[in-house]
């Protein structure tokens, strides 16, 4: 029997400490060369608290929360058949070096399409006291 996992919320993961080197390493990997990702003095001179994380940086934290769903036996995700279908970042504020972040994944929808399964999850990234940082939505397509 297939269990409907729509609406299921997984336990919050974290805290994750966002370090300067981690921001620089991610920015380098996506060839995001802007000084605010690499040079804290330049970021501060422009009024930012510290290094600014690249727009897609939070995927590394969001995917750790999503892993809770992927590893849920009732979600029935065969990771070798997974294709990334879509991704969205809605940032409520910028992520800066020194942030302590938490991530909570919820299953938004599960659809069947031409023998494939599409699972959409939403990950809320929060700081202390659940202050909103970013809402991240992604869909995994599991090839049938």
């Amino acid at each position: 029997m297939t269990v409907d996992i729509t609406g299921r919320e997984y336990p919050t993961v974290g805290p994750y400490h966002v370090g300067s080197e981690e921001i620089r390493r991610f920015a380098t990997a996506v060839k995001n060369t802007h000084p605010f990702h690499h040079d804290a003095q330049a970021a501060r001179a422009a009024g930012h608290k510290d290094l600014i994380a690249p727009p897609t940086f939070l995927v590394s934290i969001a995917q750790r929360a999503e892993a809770r769903m992927v590893n849920d036996p009732e979600a029935k995700v065969d990771f070798s058949r997974v294709v990334h279908a879509d991704q969205r970042f809605s940032h409520h504020r910028s992520v800066v070096a020194g942030d302590e972040l938490y991530a909570t994944a919820t299953v938004v929808s599960v659809k069947e399409l031409a023998g494939n399964r599409l699972i959409t999850t939403q990950v809320e990234i929060t700081a202390a006291e659940r202050a909103p940082v970013s809402t991240i939505t992604s869909t995994l397509l599991i090839r049938g």
Binding site: V30, K31, N32, T33, I52, P54, T56, D86, Q87, R88
Partner: peptide, 20 residues
Amino acid sequence: VDLVTEWTNDPATIIDYQTR
């Protein structure tokens, strides 16, 4: 997205980014 960052000259201006 680096093209957008380079254009605005501040990555903090990118408040939403999505794709399929």
